[in-house]
Design a protein around this nucleic acid. Structure first.
Lengths: 180, 180
DNA sequence: ACCCACATGTAATGTGTTACATGATTTT
DNA sequence: AAAATCATGTAACACATTACATGTGGGT
């Protein structure tokens, strides 16, 4: 039931269309949750059926009409209750680590190439998160409670991608320098 | 198809029963892949049907008979081919980050309690990984290529849990010190 | 007496992914 | 002329989770 809570949390900040939420998950808040538009549309229909969200169709002239969802009071209560429940760490399922673990099957150049590609990819994500940090939180030393709750998940994403880059680099260096 | 590759990778190191693999995923190699016994049994049956693994029933007297799976040459070839393919980062779906993001809905003590619980949980995991590190890799500065491929995923898990603990601690300190 | 470890599965449900489908406007 | 953005959905399939089911032997 966690996707539902992620959607409600985003609606808490502002009402949105399925399309708009999909983009936020994809672009700005991908450092703490990811979902596709198909998942989101399905889940939003459920949320509305359960009374946790409500929608309103807004006609548009130039563009297709849109259905804007917002959270209900019942949705807020439901979210607040969930916040009191203990959370389980997300299970780790990282393909790259499996590939490295099986690395002895192939020539080391194969693994090295993939590690370099992934290092670049994570460096790019890191740059994106840093740009968001600079734009939205130029002075992280004084944030009120409300801003902190937005800053802290971003910080986690930043730390995660920093680690990804560092690990890839260390892996490359160690594999390049290893005895055969 | 990534669970299949994780299983084949584990079988590469040594043949195993479904039960045994489930325990390895659960206990020792959980820092790079997690799976339950139901997933594993289903996937192993498929691997055998596809000719990538083979099984042999070994009768036992005291305990129930067991079915030991091993990887076939076709399975090795299949794995080796997969190692050449680019990997996508695992999507992030961390409940705790959603809970923090929605933190303004409840009293800060609710979030703080959860952050402390999670900090302890991750500290415990970190201790487990460090124990494995001490036991299996007492001197990480000289490892041959083969050992590196086992050490590097462990290192990633270690870095990840180190970060989890550090982030929880920072989050606790910042929230405790924040203006209302 | 009860729980844990060993050992393997089925069934139902829930979640996530991929492909298909439509159609206007804006940008390259 | 082609591709991207806005906007919403259906359908099929793949994968993951939870509950149920069974049975022995060893330890507390």
């Amino acid at each position: 039931m966690a996707l539902a809570h992620a959607i409600l949390t985003m609606l808490l900040e502002q009402p949105a269309t399925g399309y708009g939420l999909a983009k936020r998950f994809d672009r700005s808040v991908g450092y703490f949750w990811q979902a596709t538009h198909q998942q989101i549309y399905r889940e939003m229909a459920r949320l509305e059926a359960a009374g946790l969200a409500q929608s309103e169709v807004i006609p548009q002239e130039d563009r297709p009409d849109k259905r804007v969802y917002s959270i209900t009071q019942e949705g807020r209560d439901h979210l607040a209750e969930w916040l009191g429940e203990p959370s389980a760490p997300a299970p780790m399922r990282e393909d790259l680590l499996v590939q490295v673990r099986a690395g002895s099957l192939v020539d080391r150049t194969v693994i090295l190439e993939e590690l370099r590609r992934r290092r670049d990819l994570h460096a790019q994500r890191l740059a994106t998160y840093k740009a968001i940090q600079r734009r939205d939180f130029p002075d992280p030393s004084r944030l009120d409670a409300g801003a902190l709750f937005i800053y802290l998940p971003l910080l986690r994403g930043l730390m995660f991608e920093t680690d990804n880059v560092a690990w890839c680099e260390q892996a490359i260096a160690l594999i390049e320098g290893a005895a055969r």
